[in-house]
Amino acid sequence: MTERDGRPQQSERLLRTVALTKSFGGIRAIDRLDLGVARGELRCLIGPNGAGKSTLFSLIAGIHRADAGRIFFKGEDITRLPPFRRVLRGICLKFQTTRVYRDLSISQNLLVALALRGPERRDGDTAGRLAWALATFGLDRDGDRPARELPHSHQQWLEICLALATDPDLLLLDEPTAGMTPDETALTADFVRRLNGQGTTILVVEHDMTFVRQIARAVTVLHYGRVIAEGPLAAIEANKDVRRIYLGEQ
């Protein structure tokens, strides 16, 4: 993977959006946004509230249809694909608010996520990776416990495991550490780094700058539905425009 100024090269881009636009009623949430993510990257998306980060994720995952623009994944135009086909192609989104199957047990939740993968599609890698993830988060015991009895952080982790179970090439994590203690945040950060080290491309939306610092090499800053800065974290933190938006500096 080669990088120049933190920008991935054209040929290695796993995900690419071109002039992506989305409005809700009178509000333009995403405004002609161009974004590129290379295979194997670990990228953080930051920006003030309402900058369009979650909307961008929902457009990539297919929950909302873009008003204009295109999305390319592995070179294929997926702009018109329904969400479930995008998952089959290798994109998986972990929602902002936890959305596990509350009345099903942990193992039943996982059964649903794994149900797609018949024996022939389930390679040793996927099963091994999932087992490692479950063990990291302490979800590998008590499989019969209903998901609603799990504490919030564990539900977040279960969601990550569900997303992993679909064997994604691109994992979208929307505020994975919301509501977590500093220890839990550190555990999650460590996990995300390791997962990326194994080859999964990960895009993370986060508000918690501690978490961002723990994981990020490359950062994209959104504001009013546009990319206003992109690059290594240090450069972003020093960037005048970014500081102005976040801190109101002159």
């Binding site: 998952v87 059964l111 649903v112």
Partner: peptide
Amino acid sequence: HVLVAVRDDPERTRMLGH
């Protein structure tokens, strides 16, 4: 189980590839 998942949260089940 997938059926029950569809019952409880069809949107979520779509997002898991079904």
